[in-house]
Design a protein around this nucleic acid. Structure first.
Lengths: 141, 141
DNA sequence: AAAAAATGTTACACTTACTGTAACAAATTA
DNA sequence: TAATTTGTTACAGTAAGTGTAACATTTTTT
């Protein structure tokens, strides 16, 4: 799954949970309301659960619930929870060698700075602000 | 080829041209000095030529030459010349629908802002500054 | 005019990554 | 104990990336 698909799917699922809180929602219910495959959702929500953004309950009457209020959840958090690789993924396998200059180091540094900018930007965007922009009502502020 | 590979390969080739200017260098010569496949180089340099960053000459005594001084070539230019797609490529095929909210528009907007930041950053970096950072001597300033 | 040399472009096989789904173990509730 | 739900793994099918070769096109030299 690409970074943007994972992020947007996660946000969509989290928005749905905020809309319906506080009762837990199963991956099946979320799937029916978002159009995202239930198995895919479980993978994403399981990562979000490890980062304490949602709470998951197995078994009958189980499902997923928000663990933090939408105003306290930021895109950067979601992004870091679901993504191990960096957004601007750097392929540097063979740009070095031959002439002895450190192109590898140069571009690693450049892309890592870009990465920092992206994360800064996302740190400033809360789930609540996304919901406000999209005019989604929320039960939890 | 990934964005970062294309960009770093292009920069490497352009640095080599700046080092050896003003005599034209063939894709074979550049390949031998950079370790980048000659056919790949011709593809990249042909794009850079369409953007007037290099000049290409076919036939005997042909090859590639810088058309601008390294201080006037910026990473953003190179990046735009070789890349039609955006760096932070957005997959939005199916994040919409079902609940009627415009997630698609939201994320397109977000990623397009990120894109602008990335390009701003690259606009500020000249080929000459890359060469200075890497301590590469240049015949053309 | 012909041969040689170089770019420009297309094509292709190979590999890698992505995608969607299914299957099933583990956990929880009734 | 049975039913339900998450968590995780696996896998087939598809798409994308990679490296290279082949050859047409252009230019220079003889």
């Amino acid at each position: 799954m690409s970074v943007s698909t994972k992020l947007s799917s996660s946000v969509k699922a989290l928005c749905f949970l905020a809309e319906c809180s506080p009762t837990p929602k199963t991956s099946k219910e979320i799937a029916e309301n978002t159009g995202i495959n239930a198995s895919k959702l479980r993978k994403l929500l399981s990562l979000l659960s490890k980062s304490k953004i949602v709470k998951s309950n197995q078994g009958t009457k189980g499902g997923f619930q928000l663990l933090k209020s939408p105003s306290k959840i930021h895109l950067q958090e979601i992004y870091c929870a679901i993504e191990d690789r960096k957004a601007f993924h750097l392929k540097v396998s063979d740009i070095n060698g031959y002439d002895g200059y450190d192109y590898l180091g140069y571009f690693e540094n450049l892309f890592s700075n870009i990465q920092i900018d992206i994360e800064d930007k996302m740190t400033k965007i809360s789930l609540l602000s996304v919901m406000n922009d999209l005019k989604i009502e929320t039960k939890i502020k």
